[in-house]
């Protein structure tokens, strides 16, 4: 296990993997990938690969766990044992418990839960390979899966993590940048409504850096949002669209 800090910003100003500071990793998104789920999606941010299934709205037993006027959301963020360099125990860690909560809360902001009283909407997020930004890829995939399930929502959620490495603010940090950098700020928005539905900071930023980090995130989020919309309509555009 290496604890030697690699050079994160090279002399030419590029990052350790050759990206520019404001460059996203190659992103791949696909919807409707699981036959059993009501909605599903796979999202890859570079080496981070996440798959999400949505089941519901459906009735849940026992009945006393339901809410009379809206759907309950059950959200599980979980990492596969083979997703990390050192095998991760399948037992939910405190980190997975915290991330399940913040992701669920982001989805609560967008899903019209009041349309389905006494039901539950299950969102299962599995990180298949972890290389930084797993919660942001996971939330992005979850919102695509909810849309694929036809569950009414206010907006798609686009999420990305901004970091600070070797003093430079960078977009979409990977695992190396997360481990050896000075800050990691995952942020998610409903871009059409200009609402931030997930925001955490793990690290240290000055007030000024925070402002700049938000601007940088916005750039990434706009691009990811565009890709999400493309992914949803891809299968319908095999045939020409009508106007």
């Amino acid at each position: 296990m290496s604890s030697e800090k690699p050079v994160l910003i090279r002399e030419d100003g590029l990052r350790h993997d050759g990206r520019k500071p404001d460059q996203l990793r190659p992103i791949r998104m696909e919807v409707g990938v699981l036959s059993n789920a009501d909605g599903s999606a796979i999202v890859e941010y570079g080496g981070t690969k996440v798959i999400v299934a949505v089941y519901g709205p459906r009735e849940v037993h026992p009945k006393h766990l339901t809410l009379p006027d809206r759907a309950l959301i059950r959200c599980r963020y979980h990492m596969a044992p083979f997703s990390t360099i050192d095998r991760k125990s399948p037992v939910p860690s405190r980190r997975e418990i915290e991330l399940s909560k913040v992701i669920r809360e982001a989805l609560e902001a967008t899903i019209f839960t009041e349309l389905y009283p006494r039901t539950t909407i299950d969102v299962f997020i599995e990180v298949l390979q972890a290389d930084g930004g797993t919660r942001t890829a996971g939330l992005t995939a979850a919102s695509l899966a909810v849309a694929d399930a036809g569950i009414p929502m206010r907006d798609l959620v686009a999420a990305v993590a901004v970091g600070k490495v070797d003093g430079v603010l960078v977009l979409d940090i990977d695992e190396v940048e997360d481990e050896f950098g000075e800050a990691d700020m995952p942020i998610a928005m409903m871009p059409s409504l200009n609402q931030v539905v997930l925001l955490q900071l793990n690290g240290v930023l000055s007030r000024d850096e925070f402002k700049k980090a938000i601007e940088l995130a916005r750039k990434g989020i706009d691009e990811i949002y565009r890709l999400e919309k493309e992914a949803l309509t891809k299968k319908y555009l095999k045939y020409p669209e009508t106007v």
């Binding site: 609560e108 902001a109 539905v197 997930l198 925001l199 955490q200 900071l201 930023l205």
Partner: peptide, 25 residues
Amino acid sequence: GIDRDERIVGIQKTGMSGFTLGELD
């Protein structure tokens, strides 16, 4: 989270609704 040098050392948003960018400032 704020330290003695007025740096931001942690942020956690919770709750089932959002903040606008302006509100974050």
